[in-house]
Design a protein around this nucleic acid. Sequence first.
DNA 1: CACTTGACCTGTCCGC
DNA 2: TGCGGACAGGTCAAGT
Length: 292
Amino acid sequence: MPELPEVETVKNGLLNLALGYEITGINLLNANSLQSDKNILKTFVFGSKIINIRRRAKLLMVDLSSHYSLLIHLKMTGQIVFVDLNNRFAAGHPNDSFINDLPDRSTRIEIMLNNNGMIFFNDQRKFGWVKILPTITLTDEDYFKKYGPEPLMDNFSKTNFKRNLLKHPKSKIKAVLLNQTVVAGIGNIYADESLFLSKIHPESQVSSLTDKNIESLFVSIRSVLKLSIDKGGSTAKNYINAEGKKGSYLQFAQVFRRQDQPCFICGLPIVKIRVAGRGTHLCLRCQKLLIE
DNA sequence: CACTTGACCTGTCCGC
DNA sequence: TGCGGACAGGTCAAGT
């Protein structure tokens, strides 16, 4: 599920709801969802304050006053939801029934805060995880050194993008967009959307892209991600933000999950094929296949 | 080496 | 209604 815009939205929600509070306890409903020595909880988590919440690529970081951080990857179906235990059963609660039902059978970890709030880590498929690591290691020089640039930051330049793409000249462009060492944070939804906007067929070979193609892709990636953050991300099935709300980007999607519906540009039905092992949506008339 | 496939899990949907 | 198979926002290791 969660790609860059979804994790960014969760981060912003948690900053509003949980910053400054102390973690008073943690329940591990699924032990494997916490991929660190459980003893570390007592030493570096319980009694620590949340002093910052950050995102890098698709990873969420909750920095604690103990100089340790919770590092969270939501993978396909992970959710981080904050619930105010004082309010959730109140009549007319804006978030309706879902958060009133937590914990549910997908709840893997519960984090208690001293503001009578609880953070639920829900994850149907159990691919997601939480690790506890020293905050100082969660930098681009250390933990994130293999990751490519953040596409919405200044160090994501056209030249940098081109150089990283051309490290994989024989690969299909879609596979390379999904490679987190090239650009960080793009997943299946935004790869398809960016390729449509720049009129490039996802199976095009990287080495056959022109400078114009690369420039167009560079611009498309940034505009798609910005629009999605603006819309609170995409909810295809499971995704919800820290308040338990869905994102609305898919109402604006050009191709993702629009197979058999007409292309907004030319009217030809969008098709769904398989590229790099992933379901891939495109317009066969608007998106040119570039092979040398 | 470069690239593709299978595995990790749970749930849902579709065809027979 | 039941059952098998394919598929789902991600990322590795193993295979070709």
